[in-house]
């Protein structure tokens, strides 16, 4: 029963990764649409793009970490 809770919790935590995926996709998509409108300004914003993607992705990694902790560390 306890194990079942762990696995269920791990699986639920993985839903968080979907949010991160949406977030990263949003960042990249908006960057692309902006870059297509004004390609000359695109190159200067790649650093910002990566920072934004990293921030969005970090939350997904956190949820992945929660899943791992539930599976292996509890």
């Amino acid at each position: 029963m306890e194990q079942m809770g762990q696995y269920l919790g791990a699986g639920l935590a993985c839903i968080g990764m979907a949010g991160a995926a949406i977030g990263v996709g949003n960042v990249a998509g908006n960057y692309l649409s902006g870059a297509l409108r004004n390609p000359s300004a695109a190159a200067s914003q790649t650093a910002t793009l990566f920072i934004g993607m990293a921030f969005a992705e970090a939350l997904g990694i956190f949820s992945f970490l929660v899943a791992l902790l539930l599976l292996f560390a509890v």
């Binding site: 990293a54 921030f55 992705e57 970090a58 990694i61 956190f62 992945f64 970490l65 791992l68």
Partner: peptide
Amino acid sequence: VSHSIRLAGNVMAGHA
């Protein structure tokens, strides 16, 4: 926290 977990988590996740 986020600075370290991001790197470790990414690498660990990929390998796992």
